[in-house]
Nucleic acid binder design. Structure first.
Length: 382
RNA sequence: CCGGCGGUGGCGGAGUGGCCAAUCGCACUUGACUGUAAAUCAAGCGGGCAUGUCCCUGCGCAGGUUCGAAUCCUGCCCGCCGGACCA
């Protein structure tokens, strides 16, 4: 694979690369490159994590960058997820979560053996360098900036926070440097942490990131946050609506039960959730189903440029009969012109996902997988 | 450690001795309407069943006063705010 192919692969379907120049610089350097993405063990794995993030992980792997999946058990503990019980969190991390991400990777055609999992608490154990880095990062970041950064925990700025939560951003940044990761990959909601990482990069003495003798900044790669299936907080939208705010308010969330599909949802569950999803006819901008079609189905992962495979949306004859679609732009155009009814689109998306997620679903519906999932559901009250 | 305020259903938030299973809003469920969803309207929304002017549980926890307590008293736990101590 040549340089440009690698750049294209890593860049596609991203919201942002900080910076494209750094990306190119790393790929040109000839060094062995490391990718990183960290996950809180906060509950069931939804498609944002399982398909969108893991697809990008696969892109990195395919481009020859070694992928690392950081199971952030300490961060999860700090963020009071899973009852704030560290033992439970650890168990879930190395059990359910690791398996779930591996299965999701498999659904995408990847080989789970390529993934390198790191458990936070193990990584930190007897690791002076790590804690020194946490302090060094903290010394180079203001309190107010840390306070602003707690939005990366999925919490509102100025909300109730205990002090540990202010440590979280510094820890996340230290994870990047101590792991020696050149690429920090995350959803756009994690932008603040990655920007802090870049801002402090050149001031670190204990665990700087280096290419040759030069201290460099880690490149940040931000992937899309899938839209939740529920009606947005503000609707209909007007000219005064803050669109970026609307976008973030629409993000899929585990706390909103039916806004997300999980990688191991049953066939009926997938159908049910998608059927009741918000999907205004002719609306292509803030429409979760269109969004899902774009990122989960017409993603270049499955639809390579110049592809030959057809995508067929089946319809009853009285509704126009089967529809052949080449790419997402064509789909949007047709939908916008109301030539495709939302219900037909929904059925298509649901059927596609049902098929795509088959390996994950089957793993978690029997044996050890079922047991782990059951335990987790018990814990989070389903 | 001291003081002030506060802890009510999934959430927000009323109620401050009986009319309270607990106003109201949100969320949720169901039905009507749309070839989806949304919006709108109607019903339900602690648990149980024999579905009733029925039973049980219930307003941080544990006791107490009273014919009767979410409401009063005592103790404890937790939260927020302020102060003290320390320096």
């Amino acid at each position: 694979m040549n340089l440009q192919d690698k750049i294209n692969l890593i860049s596609r379907q991203t919201e942002e690369i900080i910076t494209p120049e750094d990306l190119e610089f790393f790929l040109k350097s000839g060094e062995k490159l490391n990718h990183y993405i960290g996950f809180e063990i906060s509950g069931k794995i939804h498609l944002g994590t399982g398909l969108v993030c893991m697809q990008k992980v696969k892109d990195f792997a395919d481009a020859g960058v070694k992928p690392h999946i950081f199971l952030a058990d300490y961060h999860t503990w700090i963020n009071d997820k899973l009852g704030g019980d560290l033992d439970v969190i650890k168990k879930t991390a190395v059990g359910y979560f690791k398996d779930g991400l591996s299965l999701a990777y498999k659904c995408l055609g990847g080989n789970p053996k390529d993934l390198n999992f790191i458990l936070g608490s193990e990584f930190y154990h007897n690791n002076d360098l790590y804690w020194q880095s946490v302090l060094e990062i903290s010394k180079n970041t203001s309190l107010s900036r840390m306070q602003r950064s707690i939005s990366i925990l999925g919490r509102k700025e100025g909300g109730d926070v205990d002090f540990a939560k202010l440590l979280y951003p510094a820890m996340q940044v230290a994870d990047i440097f101590c792991g020696g990761f050149h690429f920090s990959h995350a959803g756009t909601d994690q932008r603040k942490a990655n920007v802090i990482a870049r801002d402090v990069a050149k001031q670190l003495k204990f665990s700087p990131l280096k290419i040759g003798k030069d201290i460099v900044k880690p490149a940040a790669v931000h992937t899309h946050l899938l839209l939740g299936l529920e009606k947005p907080a503000v609707w209909p939208i007007s000219e005064s609506t803050d669109k970026s705010e609307l976008q973030t308010s629409m993000k899929m969330s585990k706390s909103k039960p039916d806004s997300a599909v999980f990688i191991h949802d049953s066939i009926d569950e997938i159908k049910r959730k998608i059927k009741k999803a918000f999907c205004p006819e002719g609306e292509i901008e803030f429409n979760p189903i269109i969004d899902w079609a774009k990122y989960l189905i017409f993603s270049p992962a499955y639809r390579q440029a110049g592809e030959t495979e057809k995508i067929i949306i089946s319809r009853k004859p009285e509704h126009g009969g089967n529809l052949e679609i080449k790419n997402i732009d064509e789909l949007k155009e047709i939908f916008k012109n109301k030539e495709l009814h939302p219900e037909d689109l929904k059925k298509f998306v649901a059927d596609y996902l049902i098929e795509l997620l088959k390996p994950a679903r089957e793993h978690f519906e029997k044996g050890e997988g079922k047991r782990m999932l059951g335990e987790l559901e018990e814990l989070i009250g389903k």
